[in-house]
Amino acid sequence: MKKTSGEKLKNEIIRQAVFWIALFVFGIFRNYGEHEQPDFRELFYYDVCHWIFQIIGANWIYSVLIRQFFEAKRYFLFTVYFIGSIYILGVLNRLFIVYAAEPLFVDYPQDRIYDIFTDIKYLLFSYILPVISGSFIFISMRFMLRYRDQKQHALQLQKEKSELELKALKAQLNPHFLFNTLNNIYSLSVTGSDAVSHSISHLSDILDYLLYHGQKERVPIAEELKIIRDYIALELLRYDERLTIEMQEKTGFPGLIPPLLYLSFVENAFKHGAEKTSGEVIIRISVKTDEKYAVFTVDNPLFEKHQDTNTGIGLENIRRQLDLYYPNQYSLEIKQTDNRFNIELMTPLT
C-alpha cells in the first residue's frame, strides 16, 4: 500500500526528531566529559545554538545541494555552493550566538561583525566544523535509509511482477489443460461410450481443483496427487487395457508445491506418450519426499515423429513458473533414451 504525502511527512518528522535529539544528547555528554569543572548551563546553551544550525545545514546540504546538484552530476556548482553555504552557515551561527544567545546567559564582550566575517580559522574550527560533522552523520544516515528503502521497493516490485506473471501463466495453462480434457470427453461421446458419465464426474473434480486451488500460491502435494489420480482415471476410460499406469507414492514428509505443477507433466506424458500410438503404452509416475526435497518423475514412450517434446505451451510454461517459484533452487532433468522420455523434477520441500 502506497503511503500518502501526509504519512511520509509524519514519518520524516519522526525520523529527524529521533536522530537530532539523539545527536544532541550525545554531544551534551561528550562536551560535559571534556571539561574538568564544566558549567552545564553554559554548555547546554552553546550546544543548542550549534544544534539548530546543524539541523538547518544538514537538511540544506542533503535536500538541495546533494539531491539537486551532486546527484545531477553538476559537480562544479555543487562545490561552489557547498563552500559558500557552509561559510554562510558558519557566519550566521556565530552571529546568532554572539548577538542573540550569549547576552541571555553570559556577559562576554561582543565580537565585531567584521571579525566574525574575516576570522576564517576561528570560524572554521568553532562554527563550521560542528555543522559539517552533524551534516555528515545525518547525510550518512539518509543514504543508508535510502538504500534500504530502494532495496525494499525493488523487492516489492519484483514480487508484484512475479505475482502478475504467475497469474498470467496460470490463466494460460488452465484453459489449455481444460481444452485437452474436454477433447478427451468428446472422443468418448463420439464413440458412444458408457464411460462418459464417469468422465464427467472426474472432470467435475478437476474443475473444482482448478477453481478453488489453481489460483493459490501453493497446495499440499497430497491434493495434487489426488487430482492426478482423477486425471489418470479420466484417461484410462479413453485407452482401455492398452494403457498401463505405474504410480509410486512415497510421501512420508508432507510438503507444498505450486498447483498444477505435477499435473502438467502428467498431461504431457499422455499427450506425447499415449495419443501417438495404437499399441500398448506404459507410463510411470513417481513421487518421493524426504526432509528437504520432493522428487517427481514421469516416464513415457517417445516416438520418432514426435521427438520435439521440449516445445509447446506445457513444458515452456512450467519452466517459467519454476523460475519464479524456485529461483536457482530447483532441478529439472529431461532425458530421451531408448524411445522413452523421462522428466525428473526436484524442488525444496516447503
Rank of each mutant, 00 (worst) to 15 (best):
I283W: 10
R284G: 15
S286M: 14
S286D: 15
S286H: 13
V287S: 06
D290Y: 04
E291D: 13
Y293S: 10
A294W: 06
A294T: 09
A294H: 04
V295S: 10
V295L: 08
F296T: 07
F296A: 04
T297G: 02
D299W: 12
D299Y: 09
N300L: 00
N300S: 05
P301S: 10
L302M: 10
L302G: 11
F303L: 15
F303Y: 12
E304S: 10
E304T: 11
K305W: 05
H306T: 12
H306C: 11
Q307Y: 09
Q307S: 10
D308L: 07
D308G: 13
T309E: 00
T309K: 00
T311Y: 07
G312D: 05
I313Q: 08
I313R: 07
G314I: 12
L315Y: 02
E316G: 08
I318E: 00
I318Y: 01
R319A: 07
R320A: 13
R320K: 12
Q321I: 02
Q321L: 02
L322F: 06
L322D: 00
D323S: 11
D323C: 02
Y325N: 00
Y325S: 01
Y325E: 01
Y326E: 05
P327M: 04
P327R: 05
P327V: 06
Q329A: 13
Y330M: 04
Y330Q: 05
S331M: 15
L332N: 03
L332W: 04
E333G: 02
E333D: 10
I334E: 07
I334C: 08
I334V: 15
I334Y: 05
K335T: 08
T337P: 00
T337V: 14
N339E: 07
N339W: 15
R340E: 14
